[in-house]
Design a binder for these strands. Structure first.
Lengths: 175, 175
DNA sequence: TATCTAATATTAGATAGCTAACAATTAATG
DNA sequence: CATTAATTGTTAGCTATCTAATATTAGATA
């Protein structure tokens, strides 16, 4: 087994071809999660909260629906995360424009403070992750991932159109 | 927003640099999961079972410990998955070589049968995922992912050596 | 205005992953 | 041989995600 593939086990190579990429992506996602979590946990922010905070730091005052869409998470997931974040004092949730349905989330001073504390940690995690990759390799990596995401989203949409109910992906499957 | 980035939301570009890759990897892993699950579900095999089946198809009779390591999942996870797979008749679990600790898993005829039924579905999912990527792009994608995985594993190991307890990644964070 | 439809949020329940603690067996050591 | 350490498996309990079903409000239409 060569150096480059040190971390890849036999189950990845039992088939030549593309199957292996699914495995690599899964492991990379797991690694990113854990690397970020090591750092974020020092500030007592969970990974899910981090996702929503990042979106709010860029655009404060989004509704729960908008947040769940941008985070690519379901509404109940956003709901419980936002409730928790309000309890922790990172955000407040309230209606705006006289619309009693939409619940908008607004960062508190503490929520903004977290940005300065947490972002350097995340940047560090990502610099570590791509160490040793050239700019060109990183560019192709980004492009390839974006293409795959689009392909897979279309695949899921096609299945939905064909009436195939997309089964739940519960638990922690991407680890 | 250009075509290539259609599926990427604003939270990905709020920082130039590497952070975006973590996001792309997460979304790609999610897409792979769902794409596979759409297909596997037609045969009533969960994603977790699929992971262990793939390993057994390549090397039958592995112990629970070996299976959990190759799958990059914890032992309790392997344990419950294997118990379930035995109930479903895909494998049998038994001791070998007079060692009463090790529980080895052996595929049943039904377990082997699943290989022929499921592998084409997974190959299809992966062909869809990488459609539009040249062979060279796929090669660089594989290499880049492998490098990142190694970097992130080393990062986690370093943290462990420094005495940083790696916090759990519960729930479904990679979605 | 009244009624229907769409949008949004909430609640309830299920599940696969995780950690931690325990049990049982095997190997190592005095 | 007895005791300790290492290995392996098991059980218990937690949690973030998901789907499904429900409630509430806003908008559209007769």
């Amino acid at each position: 087994m060569n150096e480059q593939n040190r971390c890849i086990d036999a189950s990845d190579v039992c088939r030549p071809g593309n199957e292996r990429i699914a495995r690599l992506v899964r492991l990379a996602a797991r690694g990113f999660n854990r690397s970020l979590q090591i750092r974020l946990n020092t500030e007592k922010v969970t990974f899910g909260q981090w996702i929503f905070l990042r979106i709010l730091w860029q655009e404060d005052g989004l509704s729960q629906r908008e947040l769940s869409e941008r985070a690519h998470l379901t509404e109940p997931t956003a709901h419980t995360a936002l409730i928790r974040m309000e309890e922790l004092g990172y955000i407040v949730r309230r209606n705006v424009e006289g619309n009693k349905r939409r619940q908008h989330a607004f960062l508190t001073p503490r929520g903004w403070e977290l940005r300065d504390q947490l972002e350097p940690l995340a940047v560090e995690a990502n610099e570590i992750a791509v160490a040793g990759l050239s700019a060109e390799e990183q560019r192709i990596l980004r492009k390839a991932l974006a293409v795959m995401i689009r392909n897979l989203e279309n695949d899921e949409a096609d299945a939905a159109r064909r009436g195939v109910r997309v089964p739940p992906t519960k638990g922690n499957p991407a680890q």
